[in-house]
């Protein structure tokens, strides 16, 4: 029985890990630009597609340990590249506009990116399996196994959480981003180019989403619609944790990840409803989420 509990726990942590990467990007971008960026899901999908596409091309030519680095770099670079294009070109135009307008435009961007994915990679799901199978599985007793790649994803999630904490509290850009998030006029008035901070932050958020999409690919498939599906859960995370808060994204991801596991195991008909029920309970007591701020 204890090995089953271990599997549940690790399943929850696994889901939380890549969900955190998506929610963290969403929350960082919202924290600064106050834009609920629906296109964020598409950046996750881009990460997934680029990683799957590149692995399909070169996985046979490069030694296995490099795969894991390639996946992350490919996902990050792909999403960052799209971020560099869409922030200055499109997203910048909705900062400070009405929310309806922001949702409309960012959703339009999501759809455009999906169509581009269709044009570039075709209608069929893309998948690669080598990095997942290569690491094999560890026996956890009772004839049960756990795929080692799961630990890679979990470790990546925590490493990036740690990196983000360090980045936001210890680095120059992190502190300036926090300053601009609270007050962009004053931050500009002490000599910081806020436009470029927005772009950099957007790219950071995009990169996180791209890594999130890329690291799940060895165990999943890149298919159209990926971007919208992850958004549903990422929004649950930021609603629970509080939009704009990284700590909220981390705790929210763990709550959603674990709730999903409990839901699937014991209330499989209402797993998604269960997650939103928790979100509603949080909102009743803390309307801005656990760590949200005005």
């Amino acid at each position: 029985m204890s090995n089953i509990i271990f599997l549940y726990l690790i399943s929850g942590l696994y889901y939380a890990a890549y969900l955190f990467l998506v929610a963290a990007g969403l929350t960082i971008i919202f924290g600064l630009a106050r834009v609920v960026n629906l296109a964020h899901g598409a950046l996750y999908a881009i990460g997934a597609y680029v990683a799957a596409w590149l692995m399909g091309l070169i996985s046979k030519q490069i030694p296995p340990p490099l795969w894991y680095i390639i996946i992350i770099i490919a996902g990050a670079a792909g999403a960052a590249f799209v971020g560099i294009i869409i922030e200055p070109l499109l997203l910048r135009r909705v900062y400070g506009r009405l929310e309806e307008f922001q949702l409309l435009l960012t959703f339009a961007i999501l759809l455009i990116i999906e169509d581009l994915e269709l044009m570039i990679w075709g209608p069929y799901p893309l998948a690669f399996k080598e990095p997942y199978h290569y690491l094999g599985a560890v026996s956890i007793g009772g004839g049960l196994m756990y795929p080692l790649y799961g630990f890679v994803v979990i470790a990546m999630g925590w490493l990036i959480a740690l990196f983000l904490w360090f980045f936001m509290t210890k680095t120059k850009l992190g502190i300036i981003i926090r300053s601009a998030a609270a007050n962009k006029e004053v931050t500009a008035a002490i000599g910081h180019n806020v436009k470029s901070i927005y772009t950099k932050t957007f790219i950071l958020g995009a990169t996180l989403a791209g890594i999130g999409g890329a690291i799940v690919m060895p165990s999943a498939t890149a298919q159209l619609g990926l971007g919208i599906d992850i958004l549903v859960f990422a929004f649950a995370v930021v609603v629970i944790g509080g939009l704009g808060s990284l700590k909220g994204a981390l705790v929210g991801s763990l709550i959603v990840g674990m709730t999903r596991v409990v839901g699937i195991a014991y209330f499989p008909e209402i797993e998604l409803a269960l997650i939103w029920l928790i979100a509603v309970i949080v909102l009743v007591f803390r309307p801005l989420g656990l760590w949200g701020r005005e």
């Binding site: 599997l7 549940y8 399943s11 889901y15 498939t221 619609g225 999903r260 195991a265």
Partner: peptide, 22 residues
């Protein structure tokens, strides 16, 4: 056990797999 999974677009089946193993 019976489960109806969101479709298409579910990328993580680990909890379903665990439940069936249980």
């Amino acid at each position: 056990y019976e489960a109806f999974v969101k479709f298409p677009g579910t990328t993580d089946f680990s909890a379903y797999i665990t439940k069936m193993l249980e």
